[in-house]
């Protein structure tokens, strides 16, 4: 039987940091993107089904966010461990140039820079945050979100696995949130979808977080094209 003191010792400040950084209240601007879901909403002559929305998110996770963002996070942690500052900049550039859609590229750097700056206000002594901020200022790095995220999570003593989980979870919540605001999901369905996608999030992190940077890949051509079309829409609620 567990005592109260056992329970207390099993939790830590890191658990709260885990909650803080994965909370949608944390300012990252992710709520402004639908990842092209808005275009599907307008282009379909019928309501998108629950399964179609779920498949849409699943495709992103398995075919893009996992093998790129998660991979970047894992490699950023490795760079930190080796104190290999140069490879952080290489990762940043590699990720930036793999983003095919202009708006998603700029959204990633805008969110990344703001995330970095926010975490730096309370992790001001972290040498990696300082280095990366200076690299952005000097024009050597772009400030992409997954690198900023990994450095921020590391500065708050979170493991790379948790960092990967948080990023993927945040992505799922942002797309489900977009679906709610578009009126194509209701709030219980949204939570059910997040719950159902948890095993996919978990397996995607485990599969990709230890992959070397040169094995980074993505393949969702149909969704890339959807995002490019969405980018050109005259009237829209979301940044692509």
């Amino acid at each position: 039987m567990h005592t109260d003191s056992d329970k207390i010792s099993s939790i830590s400040i890191e658990d709260l940091s885990f909650l803080q950084l994965s909370d949608s209240f944390f300012p990252t601007g992710l709520y402004t993107t639908s990842n092209g879901l808005e275009l599907l909403f307008y282009n379909k002559n019928r309501k998108l089904s629950y399964d179609e929305i779920s498949d849409f998110i699943r495709a992103y996770i398995v075919q893009q966010i996992g093998p790129t963002d998660c991979c970047v996070i894992g490699n950023a942690y490795n760079s930190i461990q080796k104190k290999d500052f140069t490879s952080l900049v290489d990762l940043d550039n590699m990720y930036y140039f793999m983003r095919l859609v202009d708006e998603t590229r700029s959204a990633s750097t805008r969110s990344g820079i703001q995330f970095l700056r926010c975490v730096s206000t309370f992790s001001s002594e972290d040498e990696f945050l300082t280095f990366y901020s200076k690299s952005i200022k000097d024009g050597l790095a772009k400030g992409v979100f997954p690198v900023s995220y990994a450095l921020g999570c590391n500065s708050m003593n979170l493991t790379k696995d948790r960092s990967g989980l948080m990023l993927l979870y945040g992505f799922v919540v942002s797309v489900v949130g977009a679906a709610l605001r578009l009126g194509i999901l209701q709030h219980y369905e949204g939570q059910m979808m997040i719950n159902e996608l948890k095993p996919v999030i978990l397996s995607t992190v485990l599969k990709n977080i230890e992959q070397p940077a040169d094995s980074m890949w993505q393949f969702i051509p149909q969704l890339d094209i959807i995002q490019m079309h969405h980018e050109q829409m005259d009237s829209k609620m979301f940044i692509t």
Binding site: F25, P27, T28, G29, Y31, T32, T33, S34, A107, T109, R110, S111, I113, Q114, F115, C118, A178, R181, K236, M237, F238, I239
Partner: peptide, 20 residues
Amino acid sequence: IATGGCPHTAVREDPSINIS
């Protein structure tokens, strides 16, 4: 700037994109 349907969030709770 498109605000994801959250105009007040974009200028108050999470002005990240606007600040950028």
